[in-house]
Design a binder for these strands. Structure first.
Lengths: 108, 108
DNA sequence: ACACTCCGTAAGTTTATACTTACGGTTAAG
DNA sequence: CTTAACCGTAAGTATAAACTTACGGAGTGT
């Protein structure tokens, strides 16, 4: 499975997006990420695992803590997926416009 | 809820992504989209509804058929979300680098 | 009027997954 | 060596959502 597909799967959950957004602020321990959240700390751990597999987060061990931060690989993959899609869509639009023009010519 | 969040929710499902990709090819009726897919036609209809509410698809009635095509609004929203995230992430990186430099200076 | 095609929705079921509690491992500190 | 902080994983449950079948409406042709 492509990385971009995994990032989309990972970001398809509201709580996971919330957790992911918290990583924007910089390096955060699991306890810090979970603080104030409506779900338990183990749940956060599981979400972080998914984000990690999706190339959206990286861990760094620091004593007894795991410091999580944003991994740009996932974001890059997502951007690539989006750009590719965008191009093909625009091309389809152009084709549709050409067909439209051809139909115009015929009915004249 | 922001549009970008809804697009992420919508694209968080593999079958829905597959359907969405089929819309790239241009205007397609529901029957055409569902053709050869492993899920039933009503299922496709439901997915298309979700894509529509997520700003990723638009419908056009043509006789007894509904022609679906890609809506760029959702893609634009997603791109915006991604860009915003990217900026904040880079800024966090810069801050981290500065802190790192400050620490370097202190220990010297 | 009738038949046929194409499609959306309702209702119900099934399946995936988000979540909790319980537990054990690792590290640092007293 | 004990205690405590921090965290990941296992197992089980609960909930959301993807899917099916059944149905009816709307348009088109005969």
């Amino acid at each position: 499975m492509l990385l971009a597909e995994r990032t989309l799967d990972a970001l398809g959950d509201p709580t996971r997006r919330l957790i992911f957004k918290r990583l924007k602020g910089g390096n955060k321990s699991v306890e810090e990420v979970a603080r104030g959240l409506s779900v338990s700390r183990p749940a956060v751990s599981q979400h972080l695992k998914v984000l990690k597999t999706a190339g959206l987060a990286v861990v760094r061990v620091e004593g007894t803590r795991r410091i999580y931060s944003v991994d740009t690989r996932g974001l890059t993959a997502l951007r690539g997926w989006l750009d590719g899609f965008w191009d093909k869509t625009l091309m389809a639009f152009r084709d549709a416009a050409e067909k439209e023009a051809a139909r115009e010519r015929e009915t004249r």
